[in-house]
Nucleic acid binder design. Structure first.
Lengths: 169, 169
DNA sequence: AAATCACTGCACAATCTGTACAGTAAGCCG
DNA sequence: CGGCTTACTGTACAGATTGTGCAGTGATTT
């Protein structure tokens, strides 16, 4: 089991209030500062916490339109050359190779629906791309999140208050 | 224009090395500390920087399988009730309503392909869900990123060194 | 010309971080 | 069972950082 309940609470706290420092976190969690530091170090070392970078909102940058594009590639050549070219396009936010009839799934953003057309055209123009079919995100019902997963992995169920008693002796 | 070149460099720096503080950042950028603080405040206030929370890697938590599931919903009832139920499922990392033949696109994770089956079954069991078709992510060719977008929005082209001269007088 | 805005440079108190060390409780192993 | 290792606590101290305020300056706006 990669993380325990204290790790979970730690991650929750830093997610909710990134500004709290190690010291404040230790106070709130009721553990020694060194413990919090050690935990944080371990979580970072193990890759559970990938980083603390700023989360950028593309919409606030003017890229309010999100779409998912499924690409079909020419068989010859493989995925990698295509991926490298896609990586050159700033509007390509993410790309996966996938199972099924499509070969790659990309998440892209654009300034407007008109601009989206331009971006898609760029993708289609990439050498190796045979066909592209895209769906536009109308609304984000569940924004990207990992907290429920963390709670799950930490051994607690999603809903708070379900398992808050002291651990059995 | 939401952000300028200094904002861009600031974001780049904090993305690359989140541990550098305001003071260190001001030194590296060659501006006053107050400037960095003011910029950061503004970027946060404008929503460009949504937060500084820890980035959690689901794979490190044991959820190594990622899939994208397109849901078709029963017409009656709308999306929201479904979204609320999906939100109860920890493995649902993200969900959008979309254009096209499908109604919702979800990103989900699972511990294994077998576990993925379980998660998908949970989704299909959600009231209002008619059908689900899923594709598995085989490899992440481009991990989620926003830096190229930031550079673009900051008025610089993606490739470094292309437009680094002083701005025209 | 007056006002506004963004940035610089400086200062100070309060706080936090990095780091180290000793003591203790708990689990593991031969 | 004794010995060892690991994790956590509590404490300490120097050095660095943050929050905050203020005055001065150049550029832009009204």
């Amino acid at each position: 089991m990669p993380i325990d309940e204290l790790d979970g609470r730690l991650i929750e706290m830093f997610t909710a209030e990134p500004r709290v420092g190690v010291l404040e976190a230790s106070r709130r969690l009721g553990v020694a500062r060194g413990t919090v530091q050690a935990r944080l170090d371990r979580l970072s070392r193990d890759g559970v916490i990938a980083g603390f970078g700023p989360e950028i909102d593309p919409a606030a940058l003017g890229y309010g339109v999100t779409a998912f594009v499924t690409l079909q590639l020419r068989q010859a050549g493989g995925h990698d050359p295509v991926a490298r070219r896609l990586a050159q396009v700033p509007e390509v936010i993410e790309a996966h190779t996938i199972t099924g009839p499509g070969d790659m799934l990309c998440r892209i953003v654009a300034r407007s629906n008109t601009d989206l057309q331009r971006v898609i055209d760029v993708l289609v123009d990439v050498a190796g791309v045979e066909r592209a079919s895209s769906v536009i995100s109308l609304a984000t019902q569940i924004p990207y999140r990992t907290l429920p997963l963390v709670r799950e992995a930490a051994g607690r169920r999603s809903g708070p208050g379900q398992n808050d008693g002291p651990p059995p002796r």
